[in-house]
Design a protein around this nucleic acid. Structure first.
Lengths: 205, 186
DNA sequence: ACGTTACTTTGGAAAGC
DNA sequence: GCTTTAAAAAGTAACGT
């Protein structure tokens, strides 16, 4: 029918017009969190796919832009936590997470869970910790994850605890507060994950 | 031996029914002790039964939703209590209005801890939602029976979306077999 | 450093915005 | 899509003491 045809053109045009805005938003947020151009390119590809699959209806452009940036960071192996992404977006964390899950399912992105080790270099450098501490933290993550401690736990909290533990073991101590602040988790979470990891590593307290 | 199927416990049953007659909820709210009615927030009147413990949402159309019951029998008992209360208020209701079970929420214990990371890949990333940053459970949508299973690292699971008690049993049996085939059942 | 409360997820119906 | 109801799972967060 003619009406349906016109409607398609109308929504397609609107989508194309908004595409410009979406891409500039992705660019703005990507710069703010400091990720390479490759991430913005992946994000724009995902956004265009979402647009073609008509997944944007009923959702804000800002929300979808933020969600695809979050997905792109993970796909490129340089994940940002939802709170980090939310800091540069005007969309709240919960909405970003929901939109991300929806887009991810509908486009079949087949995202793998975030590897906590991916957060170690960035968090560690913000804390000015040595390579030795970073290597130790990664070792703690691998060993304890293999023992099943990672199931259901947030990757940032898991990484934060391992970094805290490694800083103690390498005599470069950072407080739980300092680590908690860069990882955007609470001290309680670090404490809980730390205790489990130390026990699994067979390190006496 | 404690088979996972034996650990299944029904946690909540959602059902709907109707008395085929319009109701004056404003009047009902004043005549029914303990009734909560805030039409500005929600069009339904909330009435809770103590034994069995359940909550009913009563609508102007006469349709009723019952939730919170721990068994299908409890749903009927709770609704019968409500029907009697309405009859006491002079509202004629047929003997046994048809009740439709809409959803059953169950929990169970698979008896082994689970590596959710390996499970997400093993079950197939396209059929699974596992976002530990947002929620600790792995969400698995099963086609037959059509239910959703939440799997946790502890080996505890939640089965929801089913309309019969057998749906939960079948789902637990199938997911245990599936996980076992993948060599991921401790 | 505790403890408590509360929020995240899944599913479904209802009437109305 | 939202609003309300109930219940489980386990993790995380935000209070108060």
């Amino acid at each position: 029918r003619l009406r349906k045809w016109q409607e398609r053109i109308r929504t397609k045009d609107a989508g194309e017009r908004n595409l410009q805005f979406a891409l500039s938003e992705i660019d703005r947020m990507a710069s703010a969190i400091g990720v390479p151009r490759s991430v913005r390119e992946v994000a724009s590809v995902i956004y265009r796919r979402a647009l073609n699959e008509d997944l944007i209806r009923g959702r804000s452009i800002e929300g979808v832009s933020t969600a695809v940036l979050y997905a792109a960071c993970r796909k490129e192996g340089i994940p940002r936590s939802l709170e980090e992404i939310a800091e540069v977006s005007r969309v709240e964390r919960k909405e970003i997470g929901r939109t991300y899950r929806y887009i991810s399912q509908e486009l079949g992105l087949e995202m793998r869970p975030v590897d906590p080790k991916k957060y170690v270099p960035r968090f560690s450098s913000q804390l000015e910790l040595s390579e030795e501490v970073q290597a130790k933290a990664k070792e703690i993550i691998d060993t304890t994850a293999e023992q099943g401690l990672l199931s259901g736990k947030s990757p940032t909290g898991f990484a934060a605890a391992a970094i805290y533990a490694a800083s103690l073991l390498c005599n470069e101590k950072k407080t739980q507060r300092e680590v908690a602040d860069v990882a955007q988790v609470t001290e309680v979470t670090i404490r809980n994950r730390y205790q489990e990891q130390i026990e699994a590593m067979g390190i006496p307290t | 031996m404690s088979a996972p199927a034996d650990s299944i416990e029904i946690q909540n049953v959602v059902a709907s029914t109707g008395i085929g007659q319009e109701l004056d909820l404003e009047a009902l709210a004043t005549d029914l002790p303990g009734a909560d009615f805030n039409p500005d927030n929600f069009p339904g009147l909330v009435y809770r039964t103590q034994e069995p413990k359940a909550a009913a949402l009563i609508f102007r159309s006469g349709k009723i939703v019952c939730t919170g019951a721990k068994s299908i029998n409890d749903v009927h008992e709770a609704l019968d209590i409500i029907f009697d209360k309405l009859r006491d208020l002079g509202i004629p209701i047929e003997d046994a209005p048809a009740v439709t079970v809409q959803n059953i929420v169950s929990s169970a214990d698979l008896g082994h801890s689970l590596n959710l990371n390996a499970l997400a890949i093993g079950l197939g990333l396209e059929d699974v939602e596992y976002e530990p940053e947002q929620f600790p459970g792995l969400v698995y949508r099963m086609d037959d029976p059509e239910v959703v299973i939440l799997l946790f690292g502890s080996g505890k699971v939640v089965i929801t979306g089913g309309k019969t008690v057998d749906d939960a049993s079948a789902a637990v049996g199938l997911i245990v077999d599936r996980i076992d085939e993948l060599g991921l059942l401790g």
